[in-house]
Computed example of a mutant assay.
Amino acid sequence: MDKIAVLIPCYNEEKTIGKVIRDAKKALPEATIYVYNNNSKDRTAEIAEAEGAVVRNEYMQGKGNVIRRMFREIDALVYVMVDGDDTYPMESAPEMVDLVLNHNSDMVVGDRLSSTYYQENKRPFHNFGNNLVRGSINKLFGCNIRDIMTGFRAFSYEFVKTFPVLSKGFEIETEMTIHAVYNNMQIDNVVIDYRDRPEGSESKLNTYADGFKVLKTIARLYRSYKPFGFFSILAGLLAILSAIFFVPILQEYWATHLVPRIPTLIVCCFVMMAAVQSFFVGVLLSTMAINNRREFEMQLNMLQRHKETDYSDNEK
């Protein structure tokens, strides 16, 4: 087990990967640096190896797939994840590591949005998307995370080994945040300076396609983690829809004592039944979610003992 592991997922980052590795070594000289090459077609892997990083490959395309491989293969007391595009300053890494090692943090978020992101980032729809995602998650999950989509984070061993990676692409950061919030893990924010990609380095993000995937991920995780809230909203919408079509029928019945639109009345009844069913589905799934939380806490206790045993054996 490493004490500190720096994890760098990479896809075609030959312009910047060398500098990122050198900065990581300078900021965290005792860390082991891992570069996971995700089918790069340039010299990313070659440069990373020449700089002294441990280079491994993930052949399934997508950042989520790379992070799944990293978390599965590497054991460390603290993990620092940073993108290979040289947009994040590694000078902040020691503070993030200290929060995990000495202040019980499970996830430390490198907060770009509170510093230079809006000045450096030249893509206005990215700015809008970041604000939309941050506002949605903070509202739905009752938290105060300042930067949801940042690629610069530090994690505890317990977080990494309990995080079920389901996403394949860039929506992975959203999934990480919601996992930590829902399971009541300690989250800290460290304000960092952000710099845009250097000339010649191209972003792999698709503003609209990836943004839509992120919103789908938020909805999916809200349904899984907060089923009572999700299905209550669905029940409320169905009940309102049923009432909108039922009220004119009721008014006409009071006036004439006739029901001329029988098919509409039948549909309204079925829609209202679906609303009632949705509500009780939310109640049942909410009970199951509470049981899952209990099992998660037991898993955390087992991991804590496993970590202490492994690291003490390494020191011997």
Rank of each mutant, 00 (worst) to 15 (best):
I148A: 05
D98K: 13
Y194F: 15
T16F: 08
N291L: 13
E295S: 14
S203G: 01
N292T: 03
R197Q: 12
N206E: 02
R22T: 06
P94T: 05
M272L: 15
H103E: 14
V55H: 07
F231P: 09
F152T: 02
S201A: 14
I172D: 10
D193V: 09
R69Q: 10
K168P: 01
I249D: 09
S203Y: 02
P89F: 08
I148Y: 10
A76W: 05
G62N: 02
K122W: 00
H179R: 06
V100C: 04
I192K: 04
N189F: 12
K139G: 11
I233K: 15
F228R: 12
E51D: 11
N292S: 14
V35C: 07
N189I: 12
K15F: 09
V100L: 00
T309S: 14
I172W: 04
Y194V: 06
L99K: 14
G84T: 02
W254K: 12
L303Q: 11
D23K: 15
G151W: 01
F141E: 02
E252I: 03
D310Q: 10
E199C: 04
F170N: 07
I145L: 06
N184C: 12
T150W: 05
G142N: 07
R72A: 15
G84V: 13
F245A: 14
A45I: 03
Y118A: 14
E46W: 03
Y208S: 09
A45Q: 00
H179I: 02
N189G: 13
D196L: 00
M272E: 11
C269P: 01
V214H: 04
S136C: 11
E46L: 05
L215Q: 12
N12Q: 03
K226Y: 12
L221M: 09
V54G: 02
T116M: 06
F163L: 08
V271P: 07
N127H: 15
L238H: 13
P164E: 03
T87I: 02
T174M: 01
D75S: 12
K15L: 13
A45M: 00
A93W: 03
E58T: 00
R112S: 04
A76V: 08
Y34T: 02
N65W: 03
D196R: 11
R146D: 03
S232F: 04
F279N: 11
V271S: 04
G110M: 09
N138K: 05
P29N: 02
N57P: 06
K213M: 12
G151N: 05
D86A: 15
L241I: 13
F246A: 14
R153Y: 09
G169C: 02
G282E: 03
D147P: 01
P263D: 05
A5E: 09
I178T: 01
K161H: 15
R305W: 01
I266G: 01
N131S: 12
M185Y: 08
L265W: 04
F296A: 01
N121L: 09
L265C: 12
S167C: 13
S201F: 10
Y222I: 07
A289W: 10
N38C: 04
K213L: 14
F128W: 06
E171A: 01
K25A: 04
A180N: 07
I249G: 05
Y117Q: 03
G200K: 11
A275G: 13
V160I: 07
Y222H: 15
